[in-house]
Design a binder for these strands. Structure first.
Lengths: 129, 129
DNA sequence: TGACGTATTGCAACAAAGTTGCGTTTACTA
DNA sequence: TAGTAAACGCAACTTTGTTGCAATACGTCA
């Protein structure tokens, strides 16, 4: 996947993408850093750059939670630019809802152009409920 | 409005709420600080605490944009816990869409409990389109 | 297979946004 | 109008993310 972009396949990119593909939810920069601690540790800055590159290449997408921290998740399926996420208000876990029903039929102000719709469902996850 | 909460009506709380009520969109801590510069300047920390208090009392609500900065907006109408926001991907302005059509009919994982639905429409505002 | 050039990396320093502790001031109560 | 607890202001700190630059490694081509 990394090589298919035409850019270099570095070990950082491969390791981070593999890790995110294995994960079932959106995780933070910090969590990724911890999980990479086995093997050669990736520099904090490098990880930021790897994540930036991955999301530029649409191999990954970012979500902001109310704790203002980016979370990253591998894009398994082709990106439809229509996401639905669930955010637990207690433990701040973020998961992706697979069957997004997101739609907006209401009016936008005159001159506004719609690009993307994001639906966020907040509540308690099974562990916190 | 401030006094009705039962807590103290300090000049900071009154000034910030008045300012947010006059504003038609969600603005950042920084923008609020600038607009308050006439009159006695409010300390940065105090402003954070005033905003926290206002949103605790539901006089104001917070939105996080993709720039990971809190934005605040006065709650004119009673809060239904169902918001719809428009975020301009270019100038990062945030406005509230008044007629939220937000709904989620899809399934949540077992054990998950829904508290609030937030719909975010991203695109270009009239000035940036 | 090995040398080369450029894309990446790692380090250090910086920046923005927000938080905490603590002594001082102020709004409300009596 | 005096007393008191809640807010405030200041300074220092934390977290998250960014920038500049020299060192390293990926991929190419001989």
């Amino acid at each position: 996947m990394v090589r298919r972009t035409g850019d270099r396949a570095t070990s950082g990119r491969v390791r981070v993408l593999a890790l995110l593909l294995a994960e079932q939810r959106a995780i933070t920069h910090h969590e990724i850093e911890e999980r990479l601690s086995g093997g050669r540790r990736l520099d904090r800055v490098t990880l930021y750059r790897v994540l930036e590159w991955l999301s530029e290449k649409c191999l990954v997408h970012r979500v902001v939670n109310d704790d203002r921290v980016w979370r990253f998740r591998a894009n398994a399926h082709s990106d439809t630019h229509q996401h639905a996420h669930f955010k637990c208000t207690r433990c701040t876990t973020v998961i992706c809802l697979d069957d997004p029903q997101a739609a907006y039929d209401g009016p936008l102000p005159a001159g506004y152009r719609l690009q993307e719709i994001e639906l966020t469902v907040k509540g308690l996850c099974a562990a916190c409920a």
